[in-house]
Structure formats: structure tokens, C-alpha cells
Amino acid sequence: MSLKAFHVLFITISSAMAFGCGVWGIRNHLSPVPGPFDLWLGVGGLLAGVGLIVYEIRFLKKTKGQSYL
């Protein structure tokens, strides 16, 4: 697996993690005892997840000629 392939995998997992953090933050913010940073983490996580997917698509387009091996 080349650096390109591992990078794509890494960004995919990071994006999933960012969405997970986003959901965690929003859920905690809506709970009876919200923490001071829950809303920030929730919104930031969801935005970061979207941002990483956009970056991944652009990265894949730019490295079309590179091998995955």
C-alpha cells in the first residue's frame, strides 16, 4: 500500500471520527447537563468531517496518476 492509499484510508477514518465527535458533542449539548465545549465540539466535528471529505475528493482528483501499491 502506497502513501497515497494510506492517506486516503487515514482521511476516511479521520472523517468518520470527526462525524462521531460531532454527534457526541451535539448529543451532550442537548443532554440535561451540557458541558461548556459540547456545542463547539459538535459543530466543529461535523464541519471537520465535511471538510475532510471535500479534501479527500480533491486529493484523489489531483493524484489520479499515482499508484495505490
Partner: peptide, 14 residues
């Protein structure tokens, strides 16, 4: 070096 670095970063992501 990049492959190693990605692995170390992936561990942190978990």
C-alpha cells in the same frame, strides 16, 4: 517516513 507517520496519527485518532 510518511507511512510510519500516518500510522502514528491513526493511533491518536482512535
Amino acid at each position: 517516513a510518511g507511512l510510519y507517520w500516518h500510522f502514528v496519527d491513526l493511533v491518536w485518532v482512535f
